[in-house]
Amino acid sequence: MADHNKEVDQITGVETTGHEWDGLKELNNPLPKWWLYIFYGCIVWAIGYWVLMPSWPLVSDYTKGVLGSSQRAEATAEFQAAQAERAKMGEKLMQASLQEIEDTPELLEFAMAQGKIAFGDNCAPCHGTSATGALGYPNLQDDAWIWGGSLDDINYTISYGIRSGNDDERYAEMSAFGRDEILSKEEIVNVSSYVAKIAGIDPDPKADLDAGAVLFEENCAACHGEDAKGLRDAGGPDLTAPNYLYKRSLEGIEAQVTSPKHGVMPAWIDRLGETTVKSLAVYVHSLGGGE
């Protein structure tokens, strides 16, 4: 640049850089020197940073830096601190009964928060993020409980599961009336239509409902109750409830009588521990269907 002819722009009185693009010339309004020094300062800072902090990637590792700073270690420490903090509340949850938890705002708030997260992690895959269930997976929002909807009942079900193989599991199995040829095809149609009528579903017009009533009395009432409203101890669901575990239609009832499906709820007590299960019980109970 020392060689170029110094040209001064007529209008502004400012020297040009000597560069020209299609007739456009650039004015040389120089930056102050300290801009440059800040740039040099950044370079010095960067070198210092490389030495002190983790920075350069290596083939299978990275430079650790003199200070040994590690965000992963910091995160782990913070996580442990948070766990220790939670453990204090967890201790309180352990001591308190389920009812006490629900009646104490401080414990309730903690249990609800913990329960909500634990639900999302463990329960939502089957029961849905909003606990509304799906075909074959119970809806936990409504008030139709097969095994009971009190705090203790829910806590027990979560702890030991249903048909889970745990020693303390809840267990019930419906006979396969069709597959095992306990009832004839016609009898199945009759008893299914009878159940449909009670549930408020249109029965098969060709079915003999009186015969169905007798069949129900003989084969189903032991578990489902004489009024078909279910028996908790036997694990027989309420057949008059607005929500069914499986298809709530005549075909659905016939299918279940012929060859029943049985879902499995795992036992969570060993995996999640008592406090988390308690929080889950309080959370599920608080959704609104709890008894």
Binding site: M1, V14, E15, N28, P30, K33, W35
Partner: peptide
């Protein structure tokens, strides 16, 4: 504008930067 022009006068030919007086 005048200040800039003045600053230019104090610039080395080779520099894009100036030390403000």
């Amino acid at each position: 504008m005048k200040k800039t022009a003045k600053a230019i006068a104090e610039t080395d030919d080779d520099s894009w930067f100036v030390s403000d007086a």
